[in-house]
Nucleic acid binder design. Structure first.
Lengths: 200, 200
DNA sequence: TTGCATTAGTTAACACTGTTAACCAGAAAT
DNA sequence: ATTTCTGGTTAACAGTGTTAACTAATGCAA
């Protein structure tokens, strides 16, 4: 077998992600994936325990990519405030530019997540933990004043998720331009937090 | 048939909502609903066009309840700032106290929503529109200073949704107490917005 | 070189899903 | 008295996730 040929496992993942995004979870079937991969449905079970596990790895992959992207964007920033902003803009940037991967993270609801191993679920929060740490640093350096960094981080994260998902879901009010909405909204999040938490 | 007996249609809706919440979307089946209602699966199709439509009415009902609750809590407030706060606390209060209904609104993803009629989708935003109007009133009265009330409202709404869904999904960090998280987090949203938008 | 184990896939089957077409008993209306 | 409507049923279809049993090919040890 030529090494340049992509492994079937990878092929299945790509097809699944695409199919998932294109036609939604409900119409995603093992047989449909198999057909596109030019293989029998049962072959998928050689690489994935079941449909749920296939989705879990899909999620895991996306979360990994998201976390790495944010880390690469923010960790180089030495200044705490700069890093704080980098995390926020990085999160939104990734979501907007990687709809397939971003939607996968939030598309599958607790149904399929039911037995999602807690070990792997921790990973989901890696980029979130980064935000907590950064805020804590800001507090330690006397830049910010916030009682519960964990709470603040959760709130910010929720707000960002709202922004991204509204845009991706094309639920934006027709009165609002997409690009304008993103920029102003992110600015609102950042300034909204800083104006409250910044020590003058 | 005795009139005190609840209509089959209502019975189906109740069972569906409960089953949906209890076992998730994936394991919700027409036959399972039918069995609990002591009826054949096909009977459901006398009241609902298909499974999607059944879910749509379920969503519609919940959205209606949410909107009405918020209106009842906020409209009596004459003061704009008080109304603003009432909408926010009302939203969270409803979510926390009506997990079944709240989760239904956000549980079903675009998959099943695909052909959700836009007409009805408008209703989804009734309580959101109320927030926009209130902010616009605040601006008109010189209480607030915000360029795009629509954008601000969306951001706030996203933030609130994050708070509620984190609590309901029991994804709260073990370090945080539930009640404390809700109170502080809501306060953060309100103050975060006001400290930025309030005209001194 | 033979024999064995592993790998990567197949076919056939099971139990379950949403949905439909055809039917049927009783009530209401003409 | 007969038609029509209401509220349900039974039987069937195509499609689903998943499993057990099988095959063909490869790699390795004797």
């Amino acid at each position: 077998m030529s090494e340049e040929e992509v492994s079937l496992r990878e092929k299945i993942l790509d097809i699944s992600r695409h199919l998932m995004f294109e036609e939604g979870y409900k119409s995603l079937s093992m047989r449909k994936i198999a057909k596109q991969a030019d293989v029998t449905a049962t072959s998928i079970y050689l690489y994935f325990e079941n449909k749920d596990h296939l989705l879990h790895t899909l999620i895991e992959e996306s979360v990994e990519d998201l976390s790495r992207f944010i880390e690469e964007k923010s960790l180089p920033k030495a200044d705490t405030l700069e890093r704080f902003k980098a995390i926020i803009t990085g999160y939104v940037e990734f979501g907007i530019n990687n709809p397939e991967k971003y939607e996968i993270i939030y598309m599958v609801r607790p149904d399929a997540m039911a037995r999602y191993p807690k070990e792997k679920f921790r990973k989901t929060r890696r980029c979130y933990e980064l935000l907590v740490e950064t805020i804590e640093q800001g507090v330690a350096q006397g830049l910010m004043e916030v009682e519960k960094p964990v709470v603040a981080a959760y709130s910010i994260w929720a707000q960002l998720h709202g922004i991204v998902s509204v845009v991706l879901g094309k639920r934006l009010d027709s009165r609002i331009g997409e690009q304008q909405f993103i920029e102003e909204s992110v600015e609102l999040v950042i300034q909204g937090f800083l104006s409250r938490a910044t020590v003058p």
